[in-house]
Design a protein around this nucleic acid. Sequence first.
DNA 1: TGAAGATATGTAGTCAACTACGTATATTTG
DNA 2: CAAATATACGTAGTTGACTACATATCTTCA
Lengths: 165, 165
Amino acid sequence: MNIIDEAGILAISTRLQRLSDQLRKDGQLIYQACGIDFEPKWFPVIWTLTSKPLLSVVEIAEEIGYTHPSTISLLKELEKIKLIRSRKDKADERKRLIALTPKGRELVEKMRPVWHVMALSLAEITNTPNNLLRAVEEVEAKLKERSFLEGAKNIWNAGKDGVSL
Amino acid sequence: MNIIDEAGILAISTRLQRLSDQLRKDGQLIYQACGIDFEPKWFPVIWTLTSKPLLSVVEIAEEIGYTHPSTISLLKELEKIKLIRSRKDKADERKRLIALTPKGRELVEKMRPVWHVMALSLAEITNTPNNLLRAVEEVEAKLKERSFLEGAKNIWNAGKDGVSL
DNA sequence: TGAAGATATGTAGTCAACTACGTATATTTG
DNA sequence: CAAATATACGTAGTTGACTACATATCTTCA
């Protein structure tokens, strides 16, 4: 690995974030251009509720891979604009069950063609020798086995016997 | 593209961000474990100043690909802990020239072996059929040619003649 | 059966980037 | 050469995620 590659890989976190941001912002503009009042950050919640129509807060958080406080704040926004509704679970009063409203379901149908176009455009953009979506999936899978931290510790300890981290 | 793939690619921004965050946090832990008082977000600035020792604020921002306000706040932190210093450019009084302090240069030397281990670990993690760093580079290059927004507009207009976005 | 622990939700505050805007200095041009 | 424009830097406020902590309800088991 040369010095340039080293800088590249060490700054990978930064670059992932910038790329994410760039895509999210353009997503926002696309919704706007289509006259749709929707934000990219709402997509995971709405998409999840489309296939699983009645879920608790924590269940949604797990599905979309966010923490529950983040999820709560998304749900608040979505409830405010009446795309979702919620009610107490009578079987377990700790739970709040979330579902799309009719307005929410209508908007989903309106957005489907836009999502399709977005997906096509993203597929075209990420259709390169190394596929970004696959790469992310592969790295996520590897990190599940062993974190960056653990990997670094192993390498360190292999190199410097006796000086354990 | 099936419905699962569509969700995956539409949520790519979200996933990039989470992955970025995960790596950054582990990076932080690695510095800590090595007893080094350094944060991953400072890396691009410090790395840049290592190869280009005297730069203005905006020059650094351009090098690291951040906005200048973001860069200023990084520089403030770095100046506070005396890893960098700054002085007015006498030739152009609008500019503030930034350089590493001796303490900064010392820390860089101390960090080099840690960076090397991190780079090895990251290289191992991203060594999958689709290489993440390459994928990011390829997508960045494609976006430079044509943004996500432009691509989506083209696809939309190709499909719905006359209903231009 | 009641105390301890687990689970579900909520609130407050943090963080690391951003945009929008303002001021100071330099450069260009009519 | 003065006015307009461009450039450099700075501040204020926003955003979208997070962690830490608090409360309410449920479950388990001694």
